[in-house]
Computed example of a mutant assay.
Amino acid sequence: MERTTEKDSHYNNLEQMPVSEILKNINKEDHSVADAVAEALPQIEKLVEITAEKMKNGGRLFYIGAGTSGRLGVVDASECPPTFGVPFDMVVGLIAGGDGAIRKAVEFAEDDMTQAWRDLSVYQVSERDVVVGIAASGTTPYVIGGLRKANEKNIVTGCIVCNTGSPVAAEAKYPVEVITGPEFVTGSTRMKAGTAQKLVLNMLSTAVMIQLGRIKGNKMVDMQLTNNKLVDRGTRMVMNYTGLNETAAAELLMKYGSVRRAVEVHMQGE
Rank of each mutant, 00 (worst) to 15 (best):
T51L: 04
K255C: 08
D89T: 09
G181A: 12
T164I: 14
T235D: 12
A250W: 10
I134E: 01
E39F: 14
A109I: 02
E270S: 13
I134G: 00
G67T: 02
N13K: 14
S69M: 07
S188T: 10
V263C: 04
M267W: 13
G243I: 06
G158C: 09
R60E: 03
L253Q: 03
K46E: 15
V161C: 12
A52M: 04
I44E: 09
G181Y: 12
P42A: 08
T139G: 10
K255Y: 09
I144G: 03
A172L: 13
N25A: 09
I102D: 00
V75Y: 14
E110G: 08
D76N: 11
R103Y: 03
C80R: 00
V168M: 08
I22L: 15
F88C: 00
P81L: 07
G187W: 13
G213K: 09
A150P: 01
F184E: 02
I160M: 14
C162F: 08
Q268E: 15
G243K: 11
V130Q: 09
E53C: 05
C159M: 05
E15Q: 13
G65R: 03
M17Y: 01
G67P: 00
I26T: 13
S126V: 07
T68H: 07
S20G: 06
S258M: 07
N202H: 14
